[in-house]
Write a protein that binds this DNA or RNA. Structure first.
Lengths: 209, 209
DNA sequence: TTTCATCTACTGGTTTTTCGGTATTTTTTA
DNA sequence: TAAAAAATACCGAAAAACCAGTAGATGAAA
């Protein structure tokens, strides 16, 4: 097998250099480029085949998330590993949902990086130890008690998320609009929110939609 | 190292038996129990230490998601691997967020199961090949073009998600309520939705919140 | 069987959103 | 620097949501 053609994308040139040095002696990959923003990377990808991208999420021009999507859409054979300092679970999950094959914190050991690269190029998704902990740690949302919804309430909640009015919902469920109104108000109370907009946001955060 | 004390939870007794047979000859684990619902499992866990749980998501009494959370909260040393037929990405992501160490489809090979078990008990998160594909595949939402929002619109979108009214927002941003109104209407147009409730739902699905 | 949760429905009034326009100023970008 | 995009602001009317409170019917569990 040929060496993995690898590029590094980070807005700190020092990080790029550091990684290059660290990976210099790896015999299964070769760093063939380093870029400090997304535009540069994309125009490089247009002309050169790349097997592996070590990508930071915070870039000056295009966000790492968007970049992931774009790369995966246009160059689906390329593997993306995120190297970042962000420890928020939502960011990690988003990068994975956007096609990244793994997520490491920048303080990961070279050994972890090696392992993740090896795992990622064979099609797995790989996280560094610390990242696994973050992912598995319950969210604040999950800690604070999720309101207990009745069947009807769940039903009406999902209708509301579809932008339906009380009238609409009442018609579909053969109820009085006033009843639907009551349910909506109970939902708003249970979630301790101000209106339906916030209700939908809260329900989404607690993965009820 | 002692053998991994393993239990299987599935509402189909056949699956339990099948897995038991398959895993009989593994020398690093021992199946010490099989349950067909969540309540049975939980009361067993109260009395017996368990290292590994092979868990189905669809159970008659408690959902696999909830079960994951409960187990991780009370018996954090126990590793959970999900064995399921559900191929929806959201379900997979949710089980992981709830503390599962991996997700396999029921048609996975014994080899994949072995690998995932090995990987999971050392603290990694592991998916079977097919599951990796599901996770990495872009969502429909991501395929249909995400509306291009201006800075102001993003700002007002997030305020709306907090349940603020036009008046509130106008005050905070030192704008006329009428201006905020216009922005809100533009947002609703861009997302092609009927009202703010649906707007928030759509924005959430496209990970803009 | 009684109690509790849920579902249903109402009154009446206030606030907010939504719809369909228009229009000026500021900022960006080609 | 001209054109395009974004941000600002307005009007009026209708629709819908929100608030506060009440209350009968139903069904499940203790």
């Amino acid at each position: 097998m040929n060496k993995l053609r690898t590029v590094i994308v980070d807005d700190h040139p020092i990080v790029i250099e550091g990684l290059k040095t660290l990976l210099k002696n790896e015999d299964n990959l070769e760093v063939i480029g380093g870029f400090s923003n997304g535009t540069q990377l994309l125009s490089y990808l247009e002309r050169n085949p790349v097997d592996l991208i070590l990508l930071d999420v915070t870039l000056p021009d295009i966000g790492g998330m968007e970049l992931c999507q774009i790369i995966k859409a246009q160059f689906s054979a390329t593997t993306i590993l995120i190297l970042s300092n962000h420890t928020e679970r939502s960011i990690i999950m988003q990068t994975i949902q956007n096609g990244a094959s793994g997520y490491l914190l920048k303080n990961s050991s070279l050994d972890e990086l090696r392992q993740c690269i090896a795992s990622a190029v064979t099609g797995n998704i790989c996280y560094s130890k610390e990242v696994v902990e973050i992912i598995s740690r319950p969210t604040k949302n999950q800690l604070r008690n999720t309101p207990q919804l009745t069947r009807r309430e769940k039903q009406i909640l999902s209708f509301l998320a579809e932008g339906k009015t009380s009238q609409n919902i009442a018609q579909e469920l053969f109820l009085s609009p006033l009843t639907v109104d009551t349910h909506r108000r109970n939902l708003i109370q249970k979630f301790e929110v101000k209106n339906v907009a916030e209700l939908i946001a809260a329900a989404h955060q607690q993965q009820l939609l």
